[in-house]
């Protein structure tokens, strides 16, 4: 019964620990997007993979209890709006869309390069939620299909 919704105990135990490590790595990639390779998209993909890892190990129902799907959905739309708002603030403050209206700061410092880290975080959330929903929706398709037959 339990095996139907997820994988074995070994996989689950390891996933429970490794999910947080993957999260950490994803956040690292996002926050250092303006200094090292990676950034919002790559980090967001890693975050989404952490969520999907959990989903594969525990099954859909437990994932639904673990993360708030509706909240994730709202975060996906809200992050796109936030991106546009940061861009429009650029028009308001510096006169052109997406202009870097924060001060640049020091080169190679973590808090530098103006709006780029903010945009990286926003993109990270967007990509994480978006990619997770792509796989999530495809898995819903599969269940409906079984129900039809």
């Amino acid at each position: 019964m339990k095996e139907k919704h997820g994988m074995t105990l070994i996989v689950r135990t390891i996933t429970r620990i490794s999910v947080w490590l993957i999260f950490l790595y994803g956040f690292y990639i996002i926050f250092h997007g303006h200094l090292t390779p990676g950034g919002g998209f790559a980090g967001g993909v890693i975050l989404a993979l952490a969520l999907l890892n959990y989903m594969l190990a525990y099954g859909r129902e437990k994932t639904e209890n673990w993360i708030n799907i509706n909240l994730l959905h709202d975060m996906e739309s809200a992050s796109a709006i936030l991106f546009l708002i940061v861009g429009i603030l650029g028009i308001a403050i510096s006169g052109s869309f997406l202009a870097n209206w924060l001060s640049g700061g020091k080169l190679f410092a973590l808090f530098s390069s103006g709006t780029i880290p903010i945009l990286n975080i926003i993109i990270g959330i967007k990509v994480c939620a978006g990619l997770f929903f792509v796989v999530w929706t495809l898995s819903i398709f599969h269940i409906e299909e079984e129900a039809e037959e």
């Binding site: 792509v134 929706t137 495809l138 398709f141 599969h142 409906e144 299909e145 039809e148």
Partner: peptide
């Protein structure tokens, strides 16, 4: 992703 979704629907 779009194409895969369409393929699943076509299979259904």
């Amino acid at each position: 992703a779009m194409l895969v979704a369409l393929a699943v629907r076509l299979y259904q």
